[in-house]
Computed example of a mutant assay.
Amino acid sequence: MEVRPVPSYQTFVIVNQEAKIAGFQDTFLDAIASSGLQNFLESQGMVYDKTNPDVVIRYTSNQDPRQKETYNAPMMPMWGMRVWDPWMFDPMWNNRMNPISTKNYELFQFIVDFIDPTQEKLVIRITAVTETANPREKQKKLEKAVKLVGKAYLEHTNNQPKR
């Protein structure tokens, strides 16, 4: 298999910002993703260029609501307290001792495409996947995902032979 060299990109543009395309249903999360990607790449020395970019960035998300069953550990006899309560271990109370419950969560995917406009080819697609249960957690996990996507992109381009 031939390893093709990856060009070193100096300028970029984020299509979602320029074309006003929302990558998320929530505008606040969309702003976090857009500004986070821009800030990270600019901190690495790349320049935002609307007119003639070396790489075009496009991102989207997939937010899929799901459920999973959780099994709680059964209660054990209280040997340390030296108390035996026959009512606690009665089969009538078995549902309390070993409850099975469902937990609602969201499978959260952040998908970023890096496209070379001169060759009109996808350079790399990076996907960050996580589970979230509440909006605050989603914001923190998105901020972390943006940093991880940026680091993965830089690692990919730095480990490839240059042109």
Rank of each mutant, 00 (worst) to 15 (best):
M1A: 14
E2P: 13
V3H: 10
P5C: 09
P5S: 09
V6W: 00
Q10Y: 02
Q10N: 04
T11P: 01
T11G: 01
T11E: 00
I14C: 00
V15T: 11
Q17H: 06
Q17R: 07
E18G: 05
A19L: 12
K20R: 10
I21D: 05
I21C: 04
A22Y: 11
F24W: 06
D26A: 03
T27H: 04
F28M: 04
F28R: 05
L29H: 04
L29E: 04
L29P: 00
D30G: 01
D30Q: 00
A31L: 07
A33C: 03
G36E: 03
Q38R: 08
N39P: 01
N39K: 03
L41N: 00
E42G: 00
Q44H: 01
G45C: 01
V47F: 00
Y48S: 03
D49E: 05
D49T: 05
K50L: 08
V55Y: 00
R58L: 12
S61R: 01
N62C: 05
Q63V: 13
R66Q: 10
R66G: 05
R66T: 03
E69D: 10
T70A: 13
Y71Q: 14
N72P: 06
M75R: 14
M75L: 14
M76T: 13
M78F: 15
M81G: 14
V83Q: 13
D85A: 13
D85S: 12
D85Q: 12
W87P: 08
W87M: 12
M88C: 15
F89I: 12
D90K: 08
P91H: 06
N94S: 14
N94K: 11
N94P: 04
N95C: 13
R96H: 13
M97N: 09
K103A: 10
Y105E: 09
Y105H: 08
Y105M: 10
E106F: 10
E106H: 09
L107W: 06
L107A: 12
F110W: 00
I111K: 07
I111F: 09
D113R: 03
D113N: 08
F114W: 02
I115K: 01
D116Q: 03
P117I: 00
Q119P: 02
K121P: 10
K121S: 13
V123E: 12
I124Y: 07
R125E: 14
I126A: 06
A133H: 05
N134P: 06
K138D: 07
K138P: 09
Q139Y: 09
Q139D: 13
K140L: 11
K141V: 05
L142N: 02
K144Y: 09
A145Y: 07
V146P: 01
V146A: 02
K147F: 08
L148A: 15
Y153D: 02
Y153T: 05
E155D: 15
N158H: 08
N159A: 12
Q160V: 11
P161L: 07
P161D: 07
P161Q: 07
K162C: 07
R163G: 15
R163S: 15
